[in-house]
Structures are given as structure tokens and as C-alpha cells.
Write a protein that binds this DNA or RNA. Structure first.
Lengths: 154, 154
DNA sequence: TGGACATGCATAGATTATCTATGTAATTTG
DNA sequence: CAAATTACATAGATAATCTATGCATGTCCA
């Protein structure tokens, strides 16, 4: 039994993660578009941040963040302040309305998975938590600049 | 310790799955656009299928599938045959070129996670496989019409 | 057997999400 | 201080998706 054969493993993991994400984004009902919700969550995690910091944390381009921020700003969900240390940069932070919007999104996302999670017993919930940890660890490992590179290219 | 508290669990799971997916789609280098790759994989799994079957399996709308199929067809990766049982319907299937393209995508996706997976030992790989199973089970449970409803609304 | 309704797919039109390339203003450096 | 760098914005393109709707084929029944 080579169920853990690395070759299929990466493929299977990405496929399953993508499917779950796709299903949730289709069935969770909240008004906030997906990318904006993602950015709200990121801002909540990081606190007031620069545009470029958000882009790096989101693994997206700086112009993508700029565009989304304009929408969030128009909705009154974020506000900008000039970075006191650098007049080129701005510090973006959530407004109270932004936090409310984020809470709405979270409730909707919890609700969409609740039917599946509610039937689970303790051990099953532990398995879910472990799965989350695996995803996070893999992403951290993958996104991290390789610490002990094989230097197959200089 | 309520690390398995269901409320945060759904949220955390969706967030982690979405982040991993996003990261992979940004870093995996293959020419095939994401949605087309997804459809190729689905066709490979299901074999010759109707448009509406693909839409249901992909949890997407029928017009979305139609659009993607047009592109796949233009690329020579799928072909259509009229369903002998129903002249309205078509049966879509992968061409050999389509299977080749799918293999390329798979290789690229494996490669993007390989640096993170290669460093893992046996038990860690088992954990990854378990995480995949959790994702699949949750999606199946969530997408399934509830089999034993609590009938809190009638 | 023929009309009414249902079904399978295509098209139209709009929105969101994203990228690369480039421009502008502020900062740092030699 | 001029040149290079950095932080962000803008331009322009493409992909992915949805809802609404149109057209052809199938089914059902009086």
C-alpha cells in the first residue's frame, strides 16, 4: 500500500483543498466578494499594514491589493493613514464597519460547513483540526524560502 | 483548551484550504488556466460526460462549463459526440492531447509542493493523507443532501 | 397526434479577480 | 543634489464566473 506516495499526495491535496474552497465560495452566502473578504481577514490578523505587506502575506501582486483596497475603502470598511515613518507608504486598517462585515462573513462561512461539522464527535473534530494544521504547516513550508537549499541552480 | 470548537473550526478550515489553493495557483507554473485544468481532471475522473453532469460535479453553473469546454475544444483537448440516447445532449471526452495536457498540469502541481513534501518522513506523509481524507469527507458530507435531517424546519 | 411543458445546451451581458507593465511621488545614497 | 530605489497607483488585458434568456429536442397527455 503506497497511499502516501508523495507523487500523488501533492496533487490530491491541492485538488481536495481547491474543491472544498470552491464549494464553499459557491454556497456560502455573503455579500462581500471573496477577495475582499480575504483581505478583511488578513487585515484583522495583521493589524494596520502597508499595501506591500498585505500583498506579500496574501501571495498576490501589489496592484491586486490596491484595487481591492479601493473597494473596501469605498465600502467604508478600511481606512488609510500616512505612515509616519515614510510618506510614500500608507497604513491600512479595519474600521468598525469593516470588522462587522468580517464577522458577517465568518458567520456565513461557519454556517455553510456547520451541517457537515455538527454531526461529528470529538475525535472527528480533532481530526479536522489536525487537517487544518497540516494545511498550515505545508503552506508555511512551501512558502518559506528554502532553509537548506540544494542549490541546484546558483 | 477548545482548539476543536466547531465555530472557529469551519472558518479556519476554509481559510487554510483557500490559502493553500491560492498559493499553489500562484506558484505552480503551467500554461493551462486553472479552471480548464480543473475540468480536464474532472473529465479524466468521470469519463465521457454530459455538460450538465460536469457542472454538477464541479459545483458550477452550466454556462461556466460550456464556456470552458469551448476553450478546451479549441485547444484540441476534448471532443464532443452527440449522446445517442438524447440528441439535445453531448458527451464530452478527453482527447489524447487532453490527457497529455492534464499530465503536464499534474507534474507542475506535484513539483510546486514537492519541496515541502520531500522533507517529510513517513508518519508526516500519513498525516497529509489523513488531511486529504478529512477534506474529502467534509466536502462529501457538506455537498450531500442531508440524509438524516433534524427537521428543524419542515 | 399535436400542443404544452420540461430539459440540455448555447449565448448575452455583467461582475470580480488577477496579472504585467508602467507612471509618480517620496526616500535613500553616493 | 542627482541617481537609484521604494511604495503605491493606473492602464490594459485575460480569466472565471454568474444570472437571464434563447433555441432545439424530448416527453406527456388529452
Amino acid at each position: 500500500m503506497r497511499v502516501t506516495e508523495p507523487t500523488s499526495l501533492g496533487n490530491d491535496l491541492l485538488r481536495s483543498a481547491a474543491r472544498l474552497s470552491r464549494w464553499a465560495s459557491r454556497h456560502a452566502s455573503f455579500d462581500v466578494p471573496f477577495a475582499q473578504a480575504r483581505l478583511l481577514a488578513l487585515l484583522d490578523e495583521l493589524g494596520p499594514s502597508r499595501v506591500s505587506t498585505l500583498a506579500a502575506a496574501d501571495h498576490s501582486s501589489q496592484p491586486s491589493i490596491t484595487t481591492q483596497l479601493h473597494r473596501l475603502e469605498a465600502a467604508g470598511w478600511v481606512e488609510r493613514a500616512v505612515d509616519p515613518d515614510d510618506a510614500r507608504a500608507s497604513l491600512v486598517s479595519l474600521t468598525p464597519a469593516g470588522k462587522d462585515a468580517l464577522e458577517d462573513v465568518r458567520r456565513a462561512r461557519v454556517a455553510v460547513l456547520a451541517p457537515a461539522l455538527d454531526g461529528l464527535d470529538g475525535p472527528a473534530l480533532v481530526r479536522v483540526r489536525m487537517a487544518i494544521d497540516v494545511l498550515d504547516e505545508l503552506l508555511a513550508a512551501a512558502a518559506e524560502p528554502p532553509s537548506h537549499p540544494t542549490r541546484k541552480d546558483g
